[in-house]
Nucleic acid binder design. Sequence first.
DNA 1: TGACATTGGTTCCATATGAAACCAATTTGT
DNA 2: ACAAATTGGTTTCATATGGAACCAATGTCA
Lengths: 154, 154
Amino acid sequence: MSSFDLDAFLPYRLSVTSNLVSRLFARRYADEFGLTIAEWRVMAVVGADGRASAVAVRARTGMDKAKVSRAVAGLLARRLVKRVAHRGDRRLEPLALTPSGRATFDAIVPRARALEAELADGLPEDQRAALDAALRHIATRAAALDAEAGGGPD
Amino acid sequence: MSSFDLDAFLPYRLSVTSNLVSRLFARRYADEFGLTIAEWRVMAVVGADGRASAVAVRARTGMDKAKVSRAVAGLLARRLVKRVAHRGDRRLEPLALTPSGRATFDAIVPRARALEAELADGLPEDQRAALDAALRHIATRAAALDAEAGGGPD
DNA sequence: TGACATTGGTTCCATATGAAACCAATTTGT
DNA sequence: ACAAATTGGTTTCATATGGAACCAATGTCA
């Protein structure tokens, strides 16, 4: 009976928590704005950076190529985002928010912040800070370990 | 330019980190033991509790019915797990590890712990503790908020 | 200036996923 | 005791996913 406490196992805690939070946000985004999580992520990067190519989105969110491509297609179809030509390198197809996309973005941000605040409600500030730092630390370590083992460039 | 810092947004940090960690573990489990994450989770619950029904697995892991059912089918096929009759309520089909399953479980546990340690390597102990507490807190809040809004019982 | 390797993106395909339909064993209400 | 509601699990079906093949535009280097 090699005792093993699943509840205390970090990867498990992480996954359970992340899934719960993702589901919660997915529902909200879908209900209130008709966006999938992937679409919102793309908008978030483009909105935050002002302009971003699919590569930038990929780098910041860890989403794979196909997923980004599909999310972008959806946003283009609804004209929340538009392509802006990149003179110099025609492979790059930088994206920018359309006015309508900007309006949606501006509407979502406060809602997202509010929901985030609700989640952290009651969490001591120092713990909140520690959480963020720890998540970054772990993400960095995981990326390193993954690259080290088979995890090729793509 | 309603500034919005995606990197500091908790749900995003959580998801990115969780995905990286999941990928890492998925690769390990697959490479070394031929198990999917879902299968390992089932084994973990059954192994930790000594005996568990699909309902128990669901409750502890948050996996949905179908996923549990499929993972169990896979484990049964490879005889890592067996059903034990539950006299009294024949709907319940409690599971237990077979000797071979127990051996696999005993082999995985130390590997999982080692990988977990590698992830936390360099993380100050108090931050590590805060991380765990904060994740629990957030998971509880998220579950509450989700149930509150549409998120029915199933 | 050509091959040849890279890089940004899209599409294809086989697999994974989860909501809902479904079946069987219990429980509840009358 | 029996119909109706519930609960544990499996299966179906439509959709999501991600790895790999693919196309186009650059970059590289002899």
